[in-house]
Design a protein around this nucleic acid. Structure first.
Length: 425
RNA sequence: GUGGGUGUAGCUCAGCUGGCAGAGCACUGGGUUGUGAUCCCAGGUGUCGCGGGUUCAAGUCCCGUCACUCACCCCA
């Protein structure tokens, strides 16, 4: 209840608000991850936040949880079914095919950042609106490209100063070997005394049962057949080469043959970055290789590889490690006017300082000197610029360094130059 | 969708077997009529989430409901 008696609005369930100073770190995390991709030649794409529902149904897979129960789907005013994007790859594929980028020089290397939506029950690190930075490298099936994508993610996390994460990966095989393996695994699981819920999962996605958290189930599947032991010679060779390139790139990884990905389109290499400081939702990024997706969406039969990195979760990981990315300082200089005449000069001066690239704020609302100085202190500014009638008469202003308390007089005419000099610029 | 926990000041929370609604931080003003962060003094806010019940009396006990939160599931 507010003082007016009106029930206050709340953000939609499971949607985080970020404001200063945390929002500065959020933006820094996103920008750092994007910069890592740009350094590897990935070009920015800006894509719609909603798409035709059928794109996700066909691209991500009807049987996935993401499509079957987590999509924000609604009819628009033209009675078309549209869906807020739950992941990024399908939309990129659609755009690439639609604009014929797959007919130009390959691979097409693209990078995106923005919000994604999944209708789930929120918990620590899991939101209904989540922010991701993603890349896709499309059109060339080269194990070196798989390794590059992984290395880009790894470099992004490292650039933030993160050390407490690990890279897990495996190979899921492809259409030449996974169907046979799947049958073999299902036969194995059918012989186990599993509960009904788990049995149903074994039907839809048997791999998922291998990743069950319950100790009794873990024990039962301890010697289940693994995909990595049933790869075709070609996919095995592909996987070995990815590992070789990763070593060449200096990227450390652990193999996890029981790793599961929630999206149907992955084949061959899949990977996940895991951080233990977040709670139950420990994945800060993941991705993999895909062979049939573009063809599935009406394009040419071209392979691709990509990742999605969770910006929200990466920020949580930073916090868990005591890292504060980015510059949370609001401003460099804070203007303190004394009286109406001075206020006009300070307002004008602030405009000039900003034009010169100096982050500048000032005391508004006619507060007294003491209040204005308090505001200057809280702004985090390095300098307070004090100006009163006395100074104007003298053609001067007072520049006070807040950390030391040292104050010097600067000429009012050359104030911008003097401030720049004081800032060491 | 299923379970557990929590709802008290702007924030973090205390409030015992029912008995006058509290602290710290933050905010505002003053101590210093041209100097902040330290220090001192002063100031204010509450439908105790909401609805019902028990009781002389409910923040406290009971029922319902909503919200938040953690976990399962799943994933970034």
């Amino acid at each position: 209840m507010t003082s007016s008696g009106i029930t206050p609005f709340q953000a939609p369930k499971g949607v985080p608000d970020y404001f200063p100073p945390v929002s500065a770190s959020f933006a820094a995390v996103r920008d750092t991850l994007v910069e890592s991709a740009r350094r590897a030649g990935y070009g920015h794409v800006e894509l719609p936040v909603f798409e035709e529902t059928a794109l996700f149904a066909r691209g991500v897979g009807e049987s996935t949880d993401v499509v079957s129960k987590e999509m924000y789907t609604f009819a628009d005013r033209g009675d078309r079914s549209v869906t807020l994007r739950p992941e990024g790859t399908a939309g990129v594929m659609r755009a690439v095919v639609e604009h014929g980028l797959d007919r130009g020089s390959l691979p097409v290397k693209l990078c995106y950042a923005g919000p994604f939506f999944r209708y789930e029950r929120p918990q620590a690190g899991r939101y209904r609106q989540l922010q991701q930075v993603g890349v896709e490298a499309i059109g060339v099936d080269d194990p070196a490209l798989d390794a590059e994508v992984i290395a880009v993610a790894d470099a992004g996390f490292r650039a933030l100063g993160l050390t407490g994460y690990r890279l897990e990966m495996t190979s899921l095989g492809d259409s030449t070997c996974r169907p046979q393996y799947r049958e073999k695994l299902q036969a194995f699981l059918a012989a186990l005394p599993l509960d009904e819920e788990t049995r149903r999962r074994a039907e839809i996605n048997p791999l998922r049962v291998l990743d069950d958290k319950r100790p009794e189930v873990r024990e039962m599947v301890a010697d289940a057949p693994l995909m990595v032991d049933n790869l075709s010679p070609e996919t095995r060779e592909h996987y070995e080469q990815v590992k070789g390139y990763l070593s060449a790139l200096g990227v450390k990884y652990v193999e996890n043959p029981r790793m599961v990905r929630g999206l149907d389109y992955y084949t061959k290499t899949t990977f996940e970055f895991v951080h233990d400081g977040l709670g139950a939702q420990s994945g800060i990024g993941g991705g993999g290789h895909y062979d049939g997706l573009m063809e599935q969406l009406g394009g040419q039969p071209l392979a691709g590889v990509g990742f999605g990195l969770g910006v929200d979760r990466t920020l949580l990981a930073c916090r868990a490690e005591g890292i504060t990315p980015g510059d949370v300082t609001r401003c460099d200089v804070f203007g303190v006017p004394l009286g109406d005449a001075a206020k006009g000069r300070v307002v004008a001066l602030a405009g000039e300082l900003r034009a010169a690239g100096v982050r500048t704020d000032l005391a508004y609302g006619g507060r007294g000197l003491k209040g204005a100085m308090k505001a200057a202190d809280k702004s985090g500014a390095r300098f307070a610029l004090v100006l009163g009638d006395r100074d104007i008469e003298a053609g001067a202003a007072q520049l006070k360094e807040l950390a030391t308390g040292e104050q010097r007089q600067i000429p009012l005419d050359g104030a911008v130059a003097a401030v720049l000099e004081a800032l060491g610029r």
